[in-house]
């Protein structure tokens, strides 16, 4: 069981994009992909705040909460401070949220 709450604010347009995903209601292939992406960036070990020293104009702001059987973790990330290993996860969630 895994639940992911994804939220993106900011950006030039300032239009919020958000969606939630539940591994039990996702098609199995997509659920496995999402779990793999979370593992690849060691999501539960990421710091709560990944922020630039000062916010940069027009960049995206992400808020990501993941609940698994025995833990919950939230990461607030400014786009300019996103580590490379987290990019594929954010790309996947952004594309999936757009399709909703």
């Amino acid at each position: 069981m895994m639940r992911v709450l994804f939220e993106r604010t900011g950006g030039f347009a300032g239009i919020k994009l958000s969606a939630s995903f539940d591994s039990e209601s996702l098609p199995p292939r997509q659920a496995r992909r999402l779990e793999k992406l979370l593992e690849d960036c060691r999501f539960f070990r990421l710091p709560v705040r990944l922020e630039e020293a000062a916010p940069s104009p027009d960049r995206f702001l992400y808020k990501l909460t993941v609940e698994s059987r025995n833990c919950v973790h939230t990461v607030h990330a400014g786009e300019g401070a996103v580590p490379a290993e987290m990019r594929p996860l954010l790309e996947w969630l952004t594309a999936a949220a757009r399709r909703r």
């Binding site: 940069s56 960049r59 300019g80 790309e91």
Partner: peptide, 27 residues
Amino acid sequence: GVNYDNAFWNGRQMVYGDGDGEIFRRF
């Protein structure tokens, strides 16, 4: 970026995405 629907200034330069192919065109 990939399907990047945004443009920004990073403190030194301008950066433009190509849009997402559904809502936004290239910036």
